[in-house]
């Protein structure tokens, strides 16, 4: 059975993929479905869901909540994806370097990951975004900075154990050049778990991004789910829907990515050969 076939038989993973696809579709078509800016006041404030023409109601300034969620999907998914790519790239680079070189390089990289894993990483992200003032760049950098150590440790572990694998030793004895050993022998065998970790990291990045913007540390020009919840949380007694629906959006997206990630993990499990 191929990895794809195994993934296809996993019901939870397929449900996850369906939800995720719907979210991506929503994000892609947001400007078509909701052509007006999500910041625009379109109707009366405090409209309950289905009370007016707005599916999920309006907020305290009369902005369409459904429009906010659709446009927020763009922001959340994009920021999380970019941050994950950055963190994964950095993690692979440093982890591979540490794992292949060993010695002092390894020591330094491992100390660094330990440092980042010890300190409260959310607080670090808050500090970084606050001091460099909230923007797409500072948010992506902050998320990447707190996320790379996990990938680095994973890749390093893979490299360390694969370096000792007999087929890599055989390649060394054959006299294969180093780049070929890294790219043809080690990397293809190490990449499975990295893909899984990276896909799960997208979920964590969405949670991080929404937490930052909940605290008011989102990019002030971009509508995001966390911002919507943060802005309306003091009205929770009178207007439950304003912070409920964006939360549901976060929940569904993160859940679906986790389901897909777990499914990928099972599908790429290397124990399949036996």
């Amino acid at each position: 059975m191929t990895a794809f076939q195994r993934f296809r038989t996993n019901l939870a993973a397929c449900v996850g993929l369906a939800i995720l696809a719907a979210m991506v579709l929503l994000a892609a078509t947001a400007p078509l479905i909701f052509p007006t800016s999500p910041w625009e006041m379109v109707g009366e404030p405090y409209l309950r869901p289905l009370e007016g023409p707005y599916l999920l109601g309006t907020d305290m300034l009369g902005r369409d909540i459904a429009a906010g969620i659709a446009h927020g999907a763009r922001v959340s998914l994009m920021l999380a994806l970019v941050a994950t790519v950055a963190a994964t790239g950095l993690g692979i680079l440093l982890g591979a370097f540490a794992g292949y070189c060993g010695g002092a390089v390894d020591e330094v990289v491992m100390r660094a990951t330990e440092f980042f894993q010890t300190i409260p990483s959310f607080l670090l992200a808050v500090v970084l975004v606050a001091l460099f003032s909230p923007s797409i760049l500072s948010i992506v950098v902050a998320i990447a900075v707190v996320s790379w150590p996990g990938v680095a440790r994973l890749v390093r572990g893979q490299f360390l154990s694969l370096r000792q694998a007999e087929f890599v030793q055989a390649a060394l004895v054959l006299g294969e050049p180093t780049w070929r050993i890294i790219f043809r022998q080690i990397l293809p065998n190490a990449i499975g778990p990295v893909i899984v970790t990276a896909s799960l990291m997208v979920a964590t990045a969405i949670l991080l991004e929404s937490s930052l913007s909940f605290l008011g540390l989102g990019d002030p020009d971009l509508m995001s789910w966390g911002y919507m919840i943060g802005a309306s949380r003091n009205l929770i007694r009178d207007a439950w829907w304003m912070c409920t629906f964006p939360g549901v959006a976060i929940f569904l997206t993160v859940l679906s990515i986790n389901l897909v990630g777990d499914g990928l993990g099972d599908a790429l499990n290397p124990r399949l050969t036996a």
């Binding site: 694998a165 007999e166 087929f167 030793q169 055989a170 004895v173 043809r184 022998q185 293809p188 050969t273």
Partner: peptide, 16 residues
């Protein structure tokens, strides 16, 4: 000078 290894499972790259 070449070598033959011990582990028939570990000595061949499973992806080649």
């Amino acid at each position: 000078i070449q070598m033959v290894f011990q582990d028939p499972h570990g000595s061949l790259n499973p992806r080649q």
